[in-house]
């Protein structure tokens, strides 16, 4: 596996989890940058049935990226690019957040994935 490229394949487990077929033609990519204490952007939109890849970078320190509703998490290490792919299977708003304690403000470091039909 490419050291700079980490791809999380999700397996079925809950209503929001599904198998992400890595189809370059249909997978949507969104770049998300982590920096104390924000993700930019902090709102991401996706469509049901279309795989979504988060391309994650950090510019200051190790952060975490966790989406419990999709069963994924990864560290985001400065100087490296981390990629995680999900398959939205239902509409709704889902949280992502930093799960590596990073200072005063850590608890507010998060964002929302909005999945539309």
């Amino acid at each position: 596996m490419n050291r700079r490229s980490f791809i999380a394949l999700l397996i079925a487990g809950s209503a929001t989890r599904g198998v992400a077929r890595l189809d370059a033609a249909t997978t949507k990519e969104v770049e998300v940058m982590a920096e104390k204490f924000d993700f930019t952007p902090d709102t991401v939109k996706a469509k049901v049935g279309q795989p979504l890849t988060f391309v994650l970078t950090s510019i200051d320190r190790i952060h975490g990226f966790k989406m419990p509703d999709f069963g994924i998490r990864t560290d985001i290490v400065p100087g490296e690019e981390r990629r995680v792919t999900i398959m939205p299977t239902k509409t709704g708003s889902f949280a992502f957040f930093c799960d590596v304690f990073c200072g005063d403000g850590h608890e507010e470091m998060g964002g929302t994935l909005i999945v539309e039909a």
Binding site: S93, F94, A95, E107, E108, G110, T112
Partner: peptide
Amino acid sequence: PGPNAPPRRPP
């Protein structure tokens, strides 16, 4: 953290 709580923790 009730059933109608938002996905992100409110202040």
